[in-house]
């Protein structure tokens, strides 16, 4: 890839900043990651396919990527609202809520897993009344729409099943969306909204035509980061997932499993597949963002 500058800019420091960025990136990320690739390349094709495409591994990809996507989507929506409320409105306890947003970063993932399990397990604070509701809901759904195995999809309980995975992944992804949106909202120029209002736009039009396009790149970034983080998450999920093979077993757990059996190559092979998948998805999202910025700027 060529990092040639496309057009001359008057601003200085391109060479220095890009040079430093690339050097630091290579030393800390690219060279170490290439160690994983090289280790995985020692395998024959058959070996590789067996490691990365056995039924259990495939089932874990579906779960990991599917639930991560769902969790990131929920985070993008609700996290967007949280960020908006935090920046624009004042209400009692606003600062406390603001501080709370960082919790998923500060709390070690294992502690988060334990705490979430304690809350959502059948005997937990919330689980004791939410869990029966969930089970009832799933049962009713199975009666109403019998062609789908709802229990397999939605789980037979909240903790120690698929909903638990979703809760953990939503928890760890939330700050990404809020904290990416917040600075952009803070810097958002009120003049834009004022101009829109002066020109006769109503609140809804200002929202969708003026504010949302400004926020969109940051929202996409937040979504992408929350998704990427969720895909790799291990510590909090294993406590609450139940970890049943073919059902609620996540891919990072399978990597650990391989490592426990001294199968470095198998582990790195799965890691490489996840890396390539995440990289592709992130790249797509970044391209989309670039496109959206150009589109909205016109």
């Amino acid at each position: 890839m060529a990092f040639a500058r496309r057009q001359r800019s008057v601003l200085p420091g391109f060479g220095l900043s890009l040079g430093f960025t690339l050097a630091y990136l290579s030393l800390l990320v690219l060279i170490p990651l290439s160690a994983a690739f090289i280790r995985a390349m020692g395998m024959s094709w058959d070996e590789f396919m067996q490691a990365v495409a056995s039924p259990r591994v495939l089932a874990s990809y579906r779960l990991t990527f599917g639930v991560s996507f769902l969790a990131a989507l929920v985070n993008a929506f609700f996290g967007g609202i949280v960020a908006w409320v935090l920046v624009r409105y004042s209400f009692p306890g606003r600062k406390i809520v603001d501080a709370l947003v960082d919790l998923p970063f500060a709390l070690p993932t294992a502690v988060a897993g334990i705490a979430l399990t304690a809350i959502y397990a059948k005997n937990g604070w919330v689980g004791q009344w939410l869990d029966p509701l969930w089970v009832q809901g799933v049962t009713k759904l199975s009666v109403a729409i019998p062609f789908v195995d709802w229990k397999a999809w939605l789980g037979g309980s909240i903790a120690f099943d698929r909903p638990g995975v979703f809760i953990a992944l939503t928890f760890i992804g939330l700050p990404f969306v809020v904290r990416t949106l917040q600075p952009v909202l803070e810097e958002l120029q009120p003049e834009l909204e004022e101009a829109a209002a002066t020109l006769g736009a109503n609140r809804w039009q200002t929202m969708t035509r003026v504010i949302f396009p400004e926020l969109f790149p940051a929202l996409i970034t937040g979504f992408a980061l929350a998704f990427a983080r969720a895909v790799g998450e291990y510590g909090s999920v294993v406590f609450i997932a139940g970890n049943r093979p073919m059902h609620s077993e996540i891919t990072p757990l399978l990597i650990i499993t391989k490592l426990e059996q001294y199968d470095y190559r198998g582990a790195t092979a799965i890691a490489v597949v996840m890396l390539v998948a995440s990289f592709t998805l992130l790249l797509l999202i970044n391209l989309l963002q670039k496109w959206s910025r150009r589109y909205y700027r016109i």
């Binding site: 399990t117 304690a118 397990a121 059948k122 005997n123 937990g124 903790a159 120690f160 294993v238 406590f239 139940g242 970890n243 049943r244 093979p245 757990l253 650990i256």
Partner: peptide, 21 residues
């Protein structure tokens, strides 16, 4: 019949004793 497969022995003890599974 296994409800939860924890990754370690202590994890299982906690699941059984603390979570009532």
């Amino acid at each position: 019949n296994v409800a939860v497969l924890d990754s370690g022995a202590r994890g299982s003890t906690t699941t059984f004793v603390q979570r009532g599974i």
